[in-house]
C-alpha cells in the first residue's frame, strides 16, 4: 500500500508524459500542409482528469519540453517557448473539470469533452500567438500575419482536437476506471 499520494502522482505524471511522447510518434493522419494528427493530447487529458489541474499542467509542461528536446524546431526563442512548454502545458487545463463528481458515464464523457475543448482551444491560442510572432519576424511588412497564423494552425490543430475528442470519449466510456483516482 503506497502511503504518499504525492509520490504516486509524480510517477503517474512521468509515465503519462512518456506515453504522450510515444503517441506523438504514432502518426495517424498526415495533413497535406505538413502538420500531422496524433493522439498526444489524450494522455495529458487523462492524467489531468485523474489527478487534477496541477499534475495535468506539469504533465503537459514536461511533454512540451521533451518534444522540444527530441524533435522540436526552433525558429525564434519566444516561438520555442510558446509552441512547446506553454502550448502543451495548457493542455493540463482540462483538469479544471472534476470528472469524479459526475456519476453517469455519459455525463463523464460529455464533461471530459468539454474539458478537452477548453484545453485544446488554449493550446491553439498558444500556437496562434507563436505563429504571429513567427510570421511577424519572417514575413514581409504589411502582411496579414493574423490571418496566416490562424489558417496555418487551424488546419492541423482542429483535426487533432476532434480526433482526440472522439478517442477520449470512447476511452472514458469503455474504461471509466482510467480517470478514477486509485488512491
Amino acid at each position: 500500500m503506497i502511503q504518499s499520494s504525492r509520490l504516486i502522482t509524480m510517477i503517474e505524471i512521468a509515465v503519462m508524459t512518456a506515453i504522450a511522447v510515444v503517441l506523438d510518434r504514432w502518426i495517424l493522419f498526415q495533413m497535406p500542409q505538413g502538420g500531422s494528427v496524433t493522439l498526444v493530447m489524450v494522455p495529458i487529458a487523462i492524467l489531468a482528469f485523474r489527478r487534477g489541474l496541477v499534475p495535468g499542467l506539469v504533465c503537459g509542461l514536461l511533454t512540451g519540453i521533451l518534444l522540444l528536446i527530441f524533435s522540436g524546431y526552433v525558429v525564434h526563442p519566444v516561438q520555442a517557448i510558446l509552441d512547446y512548454p506553454l502550448a502543451f502545458g495548457l493542455l493540463g487545463l482540462s483538469g479544471v473539470i472534476r470528472l469524479q463528481s459526475y456519476a453517469s458515464r455519459i455525463a463523464k464523457v460529455l464533461m471530459a469533452g468539454a474539458g478537452l475543448l477548453i484545453a485544446g482551444g488554449l493550446r491553439f491560442l498558444a500556437h496562434y500567438l507563436s505563429g504571429i510572432i513567427f510570421f511577424a519576424s519572417y514575413a514581409p511588412e504589411g502582411q496579414p500575419v493574423y490571418l496566416y497564423s490562424l489558417i496555418y494552425n487551424l488546419t492541423y490543430i482542429l483535426p487533432q482536437i476532434l480526433l482526440s475528442l472522439i478517442v477520449l470519449g470512447l476511452l472514458i466510456y469503455s474504461a471509466p476506471q482510467l480517470v478514477l483516482k486509485q488512491r
Binding site: I11, A14, T17, A18, V22, L62, I65, L66
Partner: peptide, 11 residues
C-alpha cells in the same frame, strides 16, 4: 527533474 528522468526511462 525526477519526473523527466523517469519519463525518459519509460519512453
Amino acid at each position: 527533474a525526477l519526473m523527466m528522468s523517469i519519463a525518459l526511462r519509460f519512453i
